[in-house]
Amino acid sequence: MASSDILRAAPSGEAVAPGNGAIAPVADGALSAFDQAVRPQLERLYRLAFRLTGQRADAEDLLQDVLTSLFERHAELTSIKDLAPWLGRVLYNRFVDSARRLRKQRWGDSGRERVVLLDDAMLDRLAADEPGPETRAAIQAEMSRLQSALDALGVEHRVVVLLHDAEGYSIEEIQAVTGVAAGTVKSRLHRARARLRELLAG
C-alpha cells in the first residue's frame, strides 16, 4: 500500500465542483456565479469551437482561453441580454484572431490519418439497412472523404456550411456569431455546398 502508486484521477464531478465548499480556503462566490452563468452555454460553445477548429485539443484550448478571459469580467455577464450569441461571437472572434496570428490554414488533423468516430446514431442516419462490417467501412471512408473535402474549402465557406448543415444554425444565428451579413452567408452556403459536391464527385 505504501509504495504503490495511489494517486489516481478522481471521477469527474467528484471532489472539486464549485459550490461544494471543496476549494479551501477561499470561499469562491465569484467562481460560483461565473459557473452558473456560463454552464448552460458550455456544450453549445464547445461544439462551436470544435466545428471551427476541427479537432478536440484545439477546441478545448479555444474554449478555455475564452472562458479564462471572460472570468475577470464575470460581473458583466449577468447584464448581457442574449448570452448565447454573445458568447458565440466572442469565441468566433478569438478563433479568427488566433488563426490569423498562427497563420493556421489547415483544419482539424490534416496530414494525419483522420479518425472518424462512428457511433450508432451516425450509422442509423447513414446506413440504409442493418450495417454490416462492409457498410461500416464504407461509411467511414465516405465520412473521411467529406472531412478532406471540408478541409479543402476556405475557412469562410467551411464555417458557414458546418454551422448551418452540421450544427443546424439558422442564417440569422450564423450572422450573429460571425458578423457576416445574411445575404453573404447564404451565397457562401450555396457555394460551399457546390464546391463540396465537386470535390466529392471527383
Binding site: 484521477a9 464547445y46 477546441a59 478545448e60 446514431a121 448543415d165 452540421a166
Partner: peptide, 16 residues
C-alpha cells in the same frame, strides 16, 4: 451530402 454533414461527428471533450 446533407445527410453526411448532418451526421458529421463532434469528438467528446477530454474527461473532466
Amino acid at each position: 451530402l446533407r445527410q453526411m454533414l448532418n451526421a458529421l461527428p463532434v469528438s467528446e471533450p477530454s474527461p473532466g
